[in-house]
Simulated scan of single mutants.
Amino acid sequence: MKETNCWIPYEQRRGHRADFKVHYRFYPEAEGGRKLLPFQGYRSDFSYEGDDLRETGVFAIHPEFEDENGDVVLDLTSPVPAEGTARM
């Protein structure tokens, strides 16, 4: 399998558009957040306030980060922006 440094957007790979878009911000380490920013392809776990994690477990979401122009970030060699928009 040939390795590539270019992300293939979900819409192209899976044939459907994102369900919704979010504005995100990764908290810096000084605010109790991340030491390093993630790269495109990052998967995150989440839960809803009030969930009993022993019963529900956690959910996973697969954001597809966008650049400042609203285009999907294709570069897999650089971290995504610390703040911006992502397709979900």
Score class of each variant (00 low, 15 high):
residue 83 E to V: 10
residue 54 R to Q: 08
residue 79 P to D: 04
residue 55 E to S: 12
residue 17 R to Y: 11
residue 79 P to L: 00
residue 44 S to G: 09
residue 25 R to V: 07
residue 11 E to N: 10
residue 75 D to T: 07
residue 35 K to P: 00
residue 23 H to Y: 12
residue 54 R to T: 15
residue 1 M to I: 06
residue 70 G to K: 05
residue 73 V to T: 01
residue 50 G to H: 01
residue 70 G to N: 11
residue 65 F to V: 08
residue 22 V to I: 15
residue 14 R to K: 12
residue 27 Y to C: 09
residue 11 E to T: 05
residue 64 E to D: 08
residue 26 F to P: 01
residue 5 N to V: 08
residue 43 R to I: 13
residue 61 I to S: 08
residue 29 E to T: 00
residue 80 V to C: 01
residue 24 Y to V: 03
residue 31 E to H: 04
residue 10 Y to I: 14
residue 32 G to L: 01
residue 44 S to C: 15
residue 35 K to T: 09
residue 61 I to N: 05
residue 67 D to S: 06
residue 12 Q to Y: 08
residue 6 C to P: 00
residue 66 E to G: 04
residue 32 G to I: 07
residue 62 H to M: 09
residue 77 T to Q: 04
residue 4 T to M: 02
residue 27 Y to P: 02
residue 63 P to M: 01
residue 36 L to W: 11
residue 38 P to T: 07
residue 68 E to M: 12
residue 67 D to V: 03
residue 15 G to T: 07
residue 61 I to H: 00
residue 8 I to R: 04
residue 41 G to E: 10
residue 72 V to L: 04
residue 67 D to M: 10
residue 85 T to L: 13
residue 38 P to I: 02
residue 13 R to F: 05
residue 67 D to I: 07
residue 33 G to N: 08
residue 5 N to R: 11
residue 9 P to G: 03
residue 82 A to S: 11
residue 42 Y to F: 15
residue 20 F to C: 14
residue 34 R to I: 10
residue 57 G to R: 02
residue 83 E to I: 07
residue 1 M to S: 14
residue 87 R to I: 01
residue 20 F to T: 11
residue 16 H to N: 13
residue 67 D to R: 02
residue 65 F to A: 00
residue 65 F to C: 00
residue 62 H to L: 12
residue 1 M to A: 15
residue 66 E to S: 05
residue 7 W to G: 04
residue 74 L to V: 09
residue 59 F to G: 02
residue 85 T to H: 12
residue 43 R to W: 06
residue 12 Q to L: 13
residue 31 E to K: 11
residue 83 E to P: 05
residue 70 G to A: 05
residue 56 T to E: 02
residue 30 A to N: 13
residue 77 T to N: 03
residue 23 H to W: 11
residue 59 F to H: 14
residue 40 Q to V: 05
residue 29 E to N: 09
residue 47 S to L: 13
residue 13 R to A: 15
residue 19 D to G: 10
residue 18 A to M: 03
residue 22 V to M: 10
residue 5 N to K: 14
residue 21 K to C: 13
residue 70 G to E: 06
residue 31 E to T: 03
residue 83 E to L: 08
residue 34 R to M: 12
residue 52 D to L: 11
residue 86 A to Q: 08
residue 70 G to P: 05
residue 45 D to W: 12
residue 55 E to R: 15
residue 1 M to D: 12
residue 52 D to K: 07
residue 66 E to A: 09
residue 49 E to K: 09
residue 44 S to H: 09
residue 24 Y to K: 07
residue 54 R to N: 12
residue 68 E to I: 03
residue 27 Y to V: 01
residue 11 E to A: 14
residue 47 S to G: 09
residue 75 D to W: 07
residue 55 E to A: 13
residue 62 H to I: 00
residue 10 Y to R: 15
residue 55 E to C: 07
residue 14 R to N: 14
residue 48 Y to G: 04
residue 24 Y to S: 00
residue 4 T to V: 10
residue 48 Y to K: 09
residue 84 G to V: 01
residue 39 F to Y: 15
residue 58 V to A: 11
residue 84 G to P: 01
residue 9 P to M: 06
residue 82 A to H: 02
residue 13 R to C: 04
residue 45 D to F: 14
residue 40 Q to E: 07
residue 87 R to H: 11
residue 17 R to N: 14
residue 74 L to P: 00
residue 64 E to C: 03
residue 73 V to Q: 09
residue 51 D to M: 02
residue 80 V to T: 02
residue 48 Y to R: 10
residue 66 E to P: 00
residue 43 R to Y: 06
residue 69 N to S: 12
residue 69 N to E: 15
residue 1 M to Q: 10
residue 71 D to R: 13
residue 32 G to C: 09
residue 79 P to G: 05
residue 11 E to P: 02
